[in-house]
Nucleic acid binder design. Structure first.
Lengths: 241, 241
DNA sequence: CGACTTAGAGTCAACTGGACCTTTAATAGA
DNA sequence: TCTATTAAAGGTCCAGTTGACTCTAAGTCG
């Protein structure tokens, strides 16, 4: 990379700063939530924003994302699903100067939010719908990043087994279905959903125990399987009216 | 982004340089090729690498990618499919210092390679298989980037209509099938492939003309349709032994 | 004309998916 | 104890899809 003669001679490369921003999703009360912070510094002071921070000297991008995840949520990053989403680099996206942001998508079960003494003191879960419907506005280009993250998550649910990353183990098939329903925003047929999940080898593994609900038949419990991709995929169109 | 107190106070953000690298694919002679350049400067002087260059002051990432595409291939970038692939930012990925590379994936028909007087003088198409099999080694982490680009392209062929980006218009169904076969590295059943393409609304549009081949029945000609996503997807498993 | 080649249409059985129904295993209340 | 209720789990049915395969169409070449 960075070899072309013109780039070398005619124009100096831009000097800039790199940051990571995190789209951290969870499902609580059957609705998809995203972790937002209230900004303590200018610009956009007091407004909601995605958690994130600058990449440090000598720090890899993934490492910076895991560090911020830990600092902002208090959760050891290695237990959550974390994947790079997209790089945002418009020259005027940050009024402080040229800052490129590498956005990451993180998925996890409904997390306790340890706050005392951490950077997460201003962090809170917000329903994604509240942002999409304009009840919450985000700083910088973070709404765009959130939308991209949501679309990625929706797509990943179709083709991979990451929905299990939203579930605390052990979980039931109904737990898993509610993840799909919350992320896709669609009701699914419980019976057909079960059939597809069970026939996909390596998606979930029964642990031989059951969970007693408040009411109704007890549900079998599962843990995550070894498969990462879904063949065939679970299609979003398969909703129930 | 870039808000956490610790990132601000305890450690200065890393100052770095951003580059774009391009994975430019085309299909020639039924095989997938990638555009490589021979590096003219240190480091890795004389070795093969992906085309790319530094992001300029005030230049957006996509704009930098389009500019490099134009400079390195001589092709007006707005005719090719171009999408961001991934950001690579390991601190030691470039011996010159901290350089983050935003990789882009570009797809196009078999292009004439105008070379005179351009930066593309050292550019050439190489079979992707030659890189994967170790006959060509790439500078920096470019083999990793190439592999990621290949996987992205293979996946995109399943879910989107971008295969048409490889075809010069007008094209035949057989032309399109050969794209899939080259990118996936699998033979496909011509009859079943045709059936799926034709029934996917908006994938291809007949122009009402035919192409006379050297031998055999003439083939109907098509241009790209308006659809961008394939529902249902074209699955890689649907090969023919 | 007949052999050859490729495009393109058609057939068929197996499989898949959505809609819907039935049974099962628990609780709550009469 | 019996019944209603709830949700899990399993089954049925039919329409649509798919992979494997066959057959026809429309050209060229000798």
């Amino acid at each position: 990379m960075a070899t072309s003669k013109s780039a070398h001679r005619r124009r100096p490369p831009a000097s800039l700063t790199a940051a990571v921003d995190l789209v951290i999703f969870t499902v609580r009360d059957g609705r998809l939530h995203v972790l937002l912070i209230e900004r303590g510094n200018m610009p956009y002071r007091g407004e909601a924003a995605l958690p994130g921070g600058f990449v440090r000297d000598g720090e890899a991008l993934d490492a910076a994302a895991r560090r911020e995840l830990r600092e902002e949520t208090g959760v050891a990053g290695d237990t959550l699903h974390l994947e790079q989403l997209h790089a945002y680099g418009d020259p005027d996206r940050d009024p402080r100067g040229r800052i490129i942001s590498i956005a990451y998508l993180a998925l996890g079960p409904d997390l306790p939010m340890p706050q005392a003494g951490t950077d997460a003191s201003a962090a809170h879960w917000s329903p994604v719908s509240a942002v999409l419907e304009g009840q919450i506005t985000l700083a910088f280009d973070h709404e765009r990043i959130l939308r991209d993250g949501l679309e990625r998550a929706r797509s990943q649910l179709e083709h991979t087994t990451i929905a299990t990353a939203f579930c605390e183990e052990p979980f039931t098939i109904a737990d898993l279905r509610q993840i799909y329903e919350a992320v896709w925003g669609l009701p699914l047929d419980p019976s057909n959903f079960r059939r597809k999940v069970m026939k996909t080898e390596g998606f979930v593994i029964p642990i031989g125990e059951r969970r007693l609900p408040d009411v109704g038949r007890p549900a079998a419990l599962f843990r995550r399987g070894l498969a990462e991709t879904l063949t065939p995929p679970l299609t979003r169109s398969g909703s129930v009216g």
